[in-house]
């Protein structure tokens, strides 16, 4: 309850309207990915889940990786949505950020997005997280390990082997329009 009240009060009181022009690149060691509007960003932040920050419904574990996560930047109170982790395999940042729930940490990564397309908002790929006072950043690469543990140690590309995805591709095809559409498309493009 106290955490919820603190988070709501902080975000409402301090949050400015737009993020597009702010520069948090000082000290960043983020790897460039060549993304739209890419800008390195390193800042101190409180970690929580989005539903908690927006509504005050705040489980102690931030949903243990099942809720989308946000960063409440210490310097200005801006709420940054964490979209991606460092792994180049279609993975988000929730599994990597949930263990830091409620803590103040330093994140390093890339702010992305064309401000015209996002209407001023910026979104973050979080590449590393450092505990307060720690000089040892942890890379945000936990997702694959967790997926493998939940899938019997399955090796290979997870996205080709995930049973939920395989089931849907089997049913609806790669284009989602049915197997016949797939077959015709593949015939035309092979």
């Amino acid at each position: 309850m106290i955490r919820a009240a603190w988070i709501i009060a902080t975000t409402l009181a301090l949050a400015p309207a737009a993020q597009a022009t702010e520069d948090f690149s000082a000290g960043s060691k983020a790897e460039g990915w060549g993304l739209t509007g890419e800008q390195p960003a390193r800042f101190s932040t409180r970690v929580t889940d989005a539903v908690c920050a927006l509504t005050g419904d705040c489980p102690a574990d931030c949903g243990a990786g099942l809720r989308q996560m946000v960063l409440l930047r210490e310097s200005d109170g801006v709420m940054v949505l964490a979209l991606k982790n460092i792994q180049p395999i279609f993975t988000g940042a929730t599994v990597d950020l949930a263990p830091w729930c409620g803590q103040t940490v330093t994140v390093d990564g890339l702010m992305v997005g064309d401000p015209e397309q996002t209407r001023g908002a910026r979104l973050m790929q979080v590449q590393t997280v450092s505990a307060a006072g720690s000089a040892m950043p942890e890379r945000t690469n936990r997702w694959l390990e967790q997926w493998r543990a939940a899938n019997g140690g399955q090796e290979g590309e997870w996205f080709r082997n995930d049973p939920r995805i395989r089931e849907r591709i089997e049913r609806d095809g790669y284009l989602g329009l049915g197997r016949e559409t797939d077959e015709a498309f593949i015939r035309e493009n092979q």
Binding site: Q68, K84, F90, T91, G92, V95, F159, D162, I165, Y174
Partner: peptide
């Protein structure tokens, strides 16, 4: 479509 399923399953918003 397929990549969108990958990203959703991978936890991307």
């Amino acid at each position: 479509h397929t990549c969108a399923m990958w990203c959703a399953a991978g936890g991307i918003p």
